[in-house]
């Protein structure tokens, strides 16, 4: 499903080169629940952005569902982000002037789905995350956990095979954080491939596989039993 080979990313800032990723190679199969852990600055987010087709690697290959992503044009990447990957951000990234329903409908608008169908689908997805009573609320009226659930509903709406979550519980208190994690567990049980970045060991324990990144390199790849 996902395969990366010798992935490297180098940032150059004022002549100083920083290596965010060095020769990262791994494979993720369909239906896996993978946690990527590591200290700050280890390159976790950079890896996630490349996996999410939001950024391009400096070198190496990224094969998603059999297609080489690293050489794709802008519009093709937009297509990938729209249809194949659902991205969940640490800071939710909801549009503040729009209701939960409209926020969830947004990817479908770019995916060319008719408006009636969009509303139906968005309502369904908000029900999946348990927010059927908050359809008309704008982000300011929601708690952090609720916002993140709207964001997850948004990530699910185009029915992508892969859900990428970049520290989805990073801004949440423990109880709300647990709700979000069980939501991811449930999604995984229903067949979604989930890749999650986290600092939190408890979450990492719930994943079935843990990749540890240090200084841009994978230092361990363990299966949890």
């Amino acid at each position: 499903m996902i395969e990366v080979k010798k992935l490297s990313k180098t940032y150059s800032n004022g002549g100083v080169e920083t290596q965010a990723l060095v020769d990262v190679s791994f494979k993720v199969e369909k239906g896996e629940f993978v946690a990527i852990i590591g200290p700050s600055g280890s390159g976790k987010s950079t890896l996630m952005h490349i996996l999410g087709a939001l950024d391009k690697p400096t070198s190496g290959e990224y094969i998603l569902n059999g297609k080489n992503v690293e050489n794709m044009k802008k519009d093709e990447l937009a297509e990938i982000r729209n249809k194949e990957i659902g991205f969940v951000f640490q800071s939710y990234n909801l549009l503040p002037r729009m209701s939960s329903l409209k926020n969830v409908m947004l990817p479908m608008a770019y995916g060319g789905i008719p408006k009636k169908e969009r509303i139906k689908k968005a309502e369904k997805m908000l029900k999946v995350v348990g927010l059927e009573d908050k359809l008309r609320s704008v982000p300011n009226q929601l708690s952090g956990g609720q916002k993140q659930r709207v964001a997850i509903a948004r990530a699910l709406t185009m029915e992508p095979a892969i859900i990428l979550a970049d520290e989805p519980t990073g801004n949440l208190p423990t109880n709300q954080s647990n709700e979000i994690i069980s939501l991811f567990e449930e999604l995984n049980k229903n067949g979604h491939t989930v890749i999650i970045i986290t600092h939190n060991d408890d979450i990492a324990k719930k994943a079935r596989r843990v990749l540890t990144l240090v200084d841009g390199r994978i230092v361990s790849d363990q299966k949890n039993i």
Partner: peptide, 16 residues
Amino acid sequence: TMEIGLRMSLGAKSRT
């Protein structure tokens, strides 16, 4: 800018 980035991350093309 943030909003534009978000829209792009959700699949908006340059043309849109």
